[in-house]
Design a binder for these strands. Structure first.
Lengths: 250, 250
DNA sequence: CGCACTGTTGATGTGCATCAAACAGCGTGG
DNA sequence: CCACGCTGTTTGATGCACATCAACAGTGCG
């Protein structure tokens, strides 16, 4: 039995390596040579399945690994003392979980799978060592961290300056674009999170989310029934956001 | 003349090194050995003075250096296309500017000095090389980036869940604590930014800031006249924020 | 089939934005 | 020196966007 188990594990391990991973071009290995990706492979003992609703890590847990999302969908959130939840992000394949834990070796948020998912745990101490050997990996890690900061600043702009309809439009456009980058339809997709989570992310109540959905529908910009989203008028939707959207020169 | 000039520069250079810098224990060199700090010194060609109101860098400028604030006070902000401003942070001595530029080699915000200030430019490509030689420097850089993410997430919680009075209380407490860490009074300090900038940072209008100040004064929590702040009731002020404040286990 | 959960829509209230005016501080120039 | 304008701050009156409370519809699961 031990043997058959190790056989199974081996198969699993072989499948888990970065070099054969379909999200390689969106993940940590961007721009690494084949040889470098192979060394990155050695980090990943195995992929881990995370069932829908399962907590990947909790606030305060000691940092062991960063997690690359290989498949599925996560949300990260922080909790106030009196139980109010602030969703800090939604992560899909190729995106990294746990970056906030580097600050003090403990995760600073909760990460929950919104659907059956799969992650590649990257033991952080090993990752740091490997990054030392592979400067472009180190550079990628730096970039990843910095990108998260830029994203967060964009969220500050959203929360500080946009009204409910604009926030929702920006949210839908953001999802659309990220799905598109991954080869999925940018016009037609299904939400992995409920209205409450969207509301928490956008700093609104779930009822307000519903009403803003109704507004966008009345303007024939999107069709949303339940969790199914169809973008009817992409330029119109963008119009709704630009103006209050980030000014990025170059 | 060239000689006397280089003499002057030399003096300035000598004074600029990390090893003799008073904010060393709050800056990049935390935990570095003397030898390591000396190597970090080689990065810093000279300190740069930045006059009040001067732009240190703008959105879209190519990343050349990160900047350690040695003295003074900065604000960073992003601009929406139609000119609305979102302040993303206020930086004081020992804090780093430009971390968001690593994401794509261009600064993603504007940095402006709120008073006459002084920064240590850290040429980023050199910093990366040096970090490769000094693992603990690399680790510090990673931590710095991650800490910025955690701070930003706290701001999301603030903007998403707190009312005006709570936001202002949190803001004052945050300043008080950071000043305290630097050896200044935590009860008595002067604001370096105007009501408008505070409002932008906290997602509120300047009039609302004024009113919230009035509220906190009426409750005898703080005395604020103009830019002078006196904290009268620290526990009371904290009380105002806890409840909606971040739940951090351990 | 019934129950729980999620989403939708309506009625009402409130916290903050907006508009407006007065005031304080401060440097400039007459 | 004071008059002046400029900028930043304070306070009041009003309106509106979103929260809150409540009822109901749709969906999925045991």
């Amino acid at each position: 039995m031990a043997e058959s188990n190790s056989q199974l594990l081996r198969v699993h391990t072989l499948k888990s390596v970065c070099s054969s991973c379909s999200v390689l071009e969106l993940c940590l290995p961007i721009g690494l040579t084949c040889g470098e990706v192979e060394r990155l492979d050695t980090l990943i003992a195995q992929r881990v399945k995370v069932k829908k609703g399962t907590v990947l890590y909790r606030t305060g847990d000691p940092l062991r690994s960063l997690y690359a999302v290989r498949l599925g969908f996560f949300k990260t959130s922080i909790l106030s003392v009196d139980g109010r939840e602030q969703v800090t992000g939604f992560q899909m394949q190729g995106e990294m979980l746990g970056l906030d834990a580097i600050s003090n070796d403990h995760y600073a948020c909760n990460a929950i799978a919104l659907e059956d998912s799969e992650v590649c745990p990257l033991p952080f101490s090993l990752l740091e060592k490997l990054a030392h050997d592979l400067p472009s990996l180190q550079h990628n890690l730096n970039k990843l961290l910095s990108q998260e900061i830029v994203r967060d600043h964009d969220m500050l702009l959203l929360l500080g300056n946009m009204n409910a309809d604009e926030r929702l439009a920006a949210f839908i456009l953001n999802l659309s674009q990220r799905l598109n980058m991954r080869g999925y339809s940018s016009k037609n997709f299904v939400l992995r999170m409920g209205r409450k989570a969207i509301g928490s992310y956008l700093g609104l109540r779930l009822e307000t989310i519903c009403r803003s959905i109704a507004h966008l529908r009345q303007e024939d910009l999107v069709d949303m029934r339940g969790r199914n989203v169809t973008i009817l008028d992409l330029p119109g939707l963008k119009q709704k956001v630009t103006g209050c959207h980030r000014h990025t020169e170059q």
